[in-house]
Design a protein around this nucleic acid. Sequence first.
DNA 1: CGGGATCTTGACTGTCCTCAAGTGCTGTGG
DNA 2: CCACAGCACTTGAGGACAGTCAAGATCCCG
Lengths: 235, 235
Amino acid sequence: MNAINHTWLEADAKVLPATGPALFRGLSAQDMDTVYAACQSETYRDGQAVRRPDILGLVEDGALREDMDSDGAPHLFSLTFRGELLAPYGPRTRATRLHAIGATRLLTCERSTFCDLSLSIPRLRLNLLNLLHDQLDAARNWQLLLGRKTAAERMASLLYEVYERQGFPDKIAFGLNRAEIGQMLGLTMESASRQLRALEKAGIVSLPSRGTVCVVTPQRLLLASGDLPEQRRVA
Amino acid sequence: MNAINHTWLEADAKVLPATGPALFRGLSAQDMDTVYAACQSETYRDGQAVRRPDILGLVEDGALREDMDSDGAPHLFSLTFRGELLAPYGPRTRATRLHAIGATRLLTCERSTFCDLSLSIPRLRLNLLNLLHDQLDAARNWQLLLGRKTAAERMASLLYEVYERQGFPDKIAFGLNRAEIGQMLGLTMESASRQLRALEKAGIVSLPSRGTVCVVTPQRLLLASGDLPEQRRVA
DNA sequence: CGGGATCTTGACTGTCCTCAAGTGCTGTGG
DNA sequence: CCACAGCACTTGAGGACAGTCAAGATCCCG
């Protein structure tokens, strides 16, 4: 390793604890002040349409759903939770629509503002790049889910992933109905319902009310998702 | 639009015709010389394992396959053709392996070198970001394919996509067997074979030899892929 | 020409989708 | 407080599509 100072892709620095959003990893408190001063925070009600940010959208609170129009009807495509970045859209991105799930706060930034910010805080660019990589990873994992998993494994995977991304809460508040869960998993409403009930009957989750799921035995949920390395079949 | 000059995310410039790799879009001939002087060009034989580049890998000639290990056995996951960029890997990327398909030339660049390059050629950073966005788009389209398409539509989609990405050649040389085609599409070898033969019987493609597909009627192939907007069912 | 790998095809099975009926929430109005 | 309507959800029966298993055909190589 040479010691040249690269402003764009610098090595990891330890300035802030790794608690906050990944976008702000490694930023000093002073940097954060600069960022917040430059960005706008927008608030949305449950179900309200969200304007897609120019380049950067960070969910500060609540959650966002992204719906895609394919074959006529819109269908739920992805979720973005608190602390996560909205998937950016490139020049050739399919049209999707954003809506708030519950009361949601979104930190956004104009393209030009972000450019200025990233000039003074190079670390921001590195973080954005890493987040893009993460999103690519996530998309690939989802490809694995849709291409190679059974309905039961898909449901378990989705539940565990949401459980994990929401920080292992007592109850995960989806705000999604069976049809929407099915859309994410490439399943019908009926299949989604059946799989969810099967997990409930197995004692892995409980369904106290509509749109709410409690994970009772996380290990067994993870096991059911087929993502544990021990499950690999012998060649 | 204000006229502030942003070195990182500048507006489109027209310096070179849009023929070459998207990574070099908008670069002057002089810039290109700088890039090629800084990067290494590696040559691989058919089937040879490819060292994953640090940050940047551009396929100058040939093609690369990327295999992922899930549930024990490796399976073909994605293809990168001439002029395209290798999907970058983030801090949390699943382990994948790269192999050349046919004689392949790969332009690579050290992380530090790329940093230096992008300092002197800011446009390079913009292009890289746009390419990342494109890859995210592609991953999402593939999610759509795996989640919502039938076997027949998947096969047609794959063929048309490869046909398009290879520049509409007379014959597309896959270099893949039925099992590998199936892996990409979330199908078995037998299903892949059946779907290919169905397209052949329908006169949409011809299969002159193993690993080779000729697109006879591109329109009908595109139609079979289910990606034409006219096909959208009325709500 | 022969051997091995790849591909094709058929019969059967299983998973998930479709269609349909029924159940249980939730909010509203009497 | 109850009746009711509307909606989401559940459950079942049957069917379609893709997977599995197995046999046979074809190609490619030496």
